[in-house]
Design a protein around this nucleic acid. Structure first.
Lengths: 253, 253
DNA sequence: CAGTGGTCTAGACCACGTT
DNA sequence: ACGTGGTCTAGACCACTGG
């Protein structure tokens, strides 16, 4: 039996996770770990049906969704293959910057500037769909790649949903990593814009005069409540956001 | 019988399009046309099974994918509903800027600066995965919203795939609209960055000094060939890119 | 309780690409 | 011809929601 098929040993029909999701996760992990390399052929649907003892429709759903996510490629009549090198930046995925930097073989560190609780300013309250003045947790931190500042994170968190957020040590675990551990977002919104940094921002990001910043604003929902809204500011000359994906499922108008 | 169900009259089992795709398209059109409004309840899966005489798995796939795309919301035990107002800008979808502007109730116009065939410069050739010097079509156009410049489009097109591109009148139909008419992209890549405009660009976009631009670079594939690569440059103070989506299918790492 | 969506099965037919 | 994925069927069981 192929070594590839042994990766699927821990698929369990009685687990709380749906089977197709277990299959997806297994494959995602194998690809992320570099265990399976680009271009490598995956087992065929029928082989997986036999090996995992599940219906082909279940296998098919797992593989189809991985295709939509761009992780694998399928060629009719040929088979399924691990897709090319993954995209490098997080425009769609919600990726922890520490992981992202380390995957590039660089060193990540961060410095917490502010971590407190404030009465929500009007615009923040609006963004978080809360009444103004309601207390929210507030974090401001800089992230470094090999000692070079690369991102300023300004984050607000709904303490009703995340009561322990204010007590964390965000020099050890990034806020993104902590929050992803705590809940599974079921909706997100991204907004991207270009802005000129003011003097403070320029200093924090060690930017020369006249350089713009790329700004990503993200809101994350769980159970129809805004859990967190964050503004990530990048030096325009040191960063780029990107994504690549199969278009089959997207609305083209 | 509900008027809603009559929308599905033209579902055909012998059409070349898969049934689930026909169902998706029908619903997309009804929502896009404003025919069905946010919050409105859709027929249940079982009602659709009876009305369309197809299997529930087929209905389910159509509705599930629409959920992933953020067009509808489904609540377990309750039903399926048209989702909130669509997102306003194109970060994921490939949207024609003329349509986008007109959907906001403004007037779109455009001015073609350049439309010719050139020997592909090195960086362009690399982006298009062609040998340098190969002839490529080249378009440069400005798009206006109510006479205010809002986007500079710099586009290269592979003439092998799109032989008639150079003969179009792009003051009447945008290049995006024309290309979408000609082929269905099966893969895209987006890269977003912040840049400072040079004097020429500032003039073209009527921008004050010191304002940054948001730049979106997109490559589009069909049959593993790059069909077109385009750089869209927006005045930072007049534009924002965004997207909102259900996260169920995305990899969260 | 009845109705809903979430998942799964064990078949089936077809179009595609390689051989 | 063969194996592949693309789609579809007609059932099924379950968990969730509302009355």
């Amino acid at each position: 039996m192929s070594a590839i098929l042994e990766s699927f040993d821990d698929i369990s029909k009685s687990a709380p996770e749906p089977i197709y999701q277990q299959i997806k996760s297994t494959i995602q992990q194998r690809i992320a770990s570099g265990d399976w390399t680009a271009g490598q052929k995956l087992p065929s649907e029928n082989e997986l049906v036999v090996a995992l003892d599940v219906s082909r429709m279940t296998i098919n759903r797992a593989l189809r969704e991985l295709t939509q996510e761009g992780l694998i490629k399928r060629v009719h009549g040929l088979g399924s293959f691990v897709a090319e090198a993954p995209r490098h930046a997080s425009l769609i995925e919600l990726q922890d910057i520490a992981l992202e930097i380390e995957q590039h073989g660089k060193r990540h560190s961060s410095q917490v500037l502010v971590l407190d609780s404030v009465a929500a300013p009007v615009e923040i309250a609006a963004q978080m769909q809360l009444p103004p003045g309601r207390p929210v947790d507030h974090l401001r931190a800089i992230h470094f790649q090999d000692e070079i500042p690369i991102q300023l994170e300004t984050r607000y968190v709904n303490p009703v949903v995340m009561p322990e957020f204010g007590q964390q040590d965000f020099t050890r675990v990034t806020a993104t990593a902590y929050l992803l551990q705590q809940f599974k977002p079921d909706e997100m919104e991204h907004r991207v814009s270009a802005v000129m940094p003011d003097r403070t921002l320029r200093k924090l990001l060690s930017m020369p005069d006249g350089q713009p910043c790329l700004q990503l604003n993200r809101r994350t929902w769980s159970n129809d409540q805004v859990v967190t809204c964050v503004t990530l500011t990048y030096p325009g000359d040191r960063y780029e956001l990107g994504a690549r994906y199969a278009t089959d499922e997207y609305q083209l108008r």
